[in-house]
Design a protein around this nucleic acid. Structure first.
Lengths: 202, 202
DNA sequence: GCCTATCTGACAGCGACTGCCAAGTGTGAT
DNA sequence: ATCACACTTGGCAGTCGCTGTCAGATAGGC
C-alpha cells in the first residue's frame, strides 16, 4: 500500500492527506449548501459540523473561521493578484495592470453560477461584506510597492496617490460586481468594470 | 416614548435624562481611554463596565455594540453626508458635491488630536476597519438616488456608474486619511483628498 | 403616600472561537 | 509483525460579545 500514485501537483499523497482533503471538501460543500439554503447568519457551526460528520473542534482546525468556509482560495486571491500585476509588461500603465489583476482574480471562479451564488451571498450578508472589505484592504496595502513603480514619479505624500488609484480600481470592481448580482448575472463583470472606470475617469 | 424637550438650551430635563447622559458619557470616556491605552481587542466589555461603574447589561443597553463605543456620531455621519450633498446647488457637479459631503463629515470631529486618535485606532484595528467599511458601504448605497440626479443621463446598468463614482470618492477619502495617519496628522486631509482624486482622474 | 413608568443589575444562555488532554490511527523503522 | 512516534481527532471547559428575562430599585405624576 505504499508508493501511491502522486498527483500532478507533486504532493506526496499519503492516506492522511487524502482523508484530510476529503473531509475538507465535505465540510466546504455542506457549509456552502446550508449557507445558500438558510443564510449565513442563520447557519451555526454546530449544524455544519453535525451534517458534515465531524466535531466542531475539527471543523475549526480545518477552517479557522466561519468566514473561511466561503473563500476556498481566500488567500489565493491576493497571491494571484500580486503575481498577475507583477507579470505585466514594464510599459503597461497602472490602470491596465490593475485591470489585468482584476480579470485574473475573476477568472479564478469555477463556473458562472458558482460565482453568482458566492457574490450574492457576499453582498447580502453584512458580516461577510465587512470581512471581505477588510481582507481586500490588506490586499491593497500589499499591492502598494508593486503599483508604485508603474506610476508617475514624485509621489511625495507617502503613496497617498498610489493607495487612491488601487482603491479606485477595487471600488469599480465592487460597483461592477454589485450591479452584476443585481442583474442576476447578466452580462460580463469586466464590461461593467470598464464602464465604471470610464465613468470615474471620464 | 415621550419626547421631552431635548433642546440644547439646557432646559430642565428630568433627573433620569441627566443621569442617563452622565452614565453614557462616563462609559464613553472610559472606553476610549482603555482602547487607546491597551488596544481595542485587548479591552473587554467587562473591564469597561467595571471601571465605568455599571453592569455589563446596562452598558449594552446604552450602546448596543462594542463598536458603538467609538462612534458617538456613527449614524450622524450618514445624515450629515446626505444633507450636505442634497443641499448643494443644482448646477454643482457630482465630484464637487461629493467633495462637499466629505468635507462636512470631516468637520464633525471635535479637535485635530481627537480625530487623529480616532483614525489611528480605526486604521490599526482590523475588526474596527471591517465594521467601518461595512457601515460606509451602507452610506454609499443611501447616496445612490441623491447622486444619480447629478450625473449624466443614460445610466443604463442599474446605476453601476453612480456606485463607482461614489465608491471612488470614499476610496480617496480612505487613501487620504490613511496617509494622514501615517504622517501623524501632518497637513490637511482635504488637501490629500484632492491630491488623490487628481491622481485618479488624471 | 401611592401607583405607574422607567431603569438597573444579576443570572442564564447562545454562538464563535481557543486551549488542553486523552484516545485513536497511519507511518516508518526495527 | 511489532513497536515507537507523529499526526489527527473529539470532548470538555472556558472566554468574549451579545440577548432575553426577571426581580428589585428609583423617579414621576397624582
Amino acid at each position: 500500500m505504499k508508493q501511491e500514485a502522486k498527483s500532478a501537483t507533486g504532493a506526496p499523497t499519503t492516506l492522511w492527506d487524502r482523508t484530510r482533503q476529503l473531509a475538507s471538501q465535505e465540510i466546504l460543500e455542506t457549509a456552502l449548501r446550508l449557507f445558500t439554503e438558510q443564510g449565513y447568519d442563520e447557519t451555526t457551526i454546530a449544524q455544519i459540523a453535525r451534517e458534515a460528520g465531524v466535531s466542531q473542534r475539527t471543523l475549526f482546525r480545518y477552517f479557522g473561521t466561519k468566514e473561511d468556509l466561503l473563500g476556498d482560495g481566500q488567500d489565493r486571491f491576493g497571491q494571484v493578484l500580486m503575481d498577475t500585476i507583477s507579470e505585466q509588461p514594464a510599459d503597461a500603465g497602472v490602470w491596465e495592470s490593475l485591470r489585468a489583476g482584476v480579470a485574473a482574480v475573476l477568472a479564478l471562479h469555477d463556473s458562472r453560477e458558482h460565482a453568482l451564488e458566492r457574490f450574492r451571498l457576499l453582498h447580502n450578508t453584512a458580516s461577510l461584506r465587512a470581512g471581505w472589505l477588510e481582507k481586500r484592504l490588506r490586499f491593497q496595502e500589499n499591492l502598494l510597492p508593486l503599483v508604485e513603480t508603474r506610476m508617475d514619479a514624485a509621489t511625495g505624500n507617502e503613496g497617498a496617490k498610489v493607495r487612491a488609484v488601487i482603491a479606485t480600481a477595487f471600488a469599480c470592481l465592487d460597483a461592477a460586481s454589485m450591479t452584476w448580482v443585481a442583474n442576476d448575472g447578466k452580462g460580463e463583470i469586466m464590461d461593467l468594470y470598464d464602464e465604471c472606470l470610464a465613468a470615474v475617469r471620464g
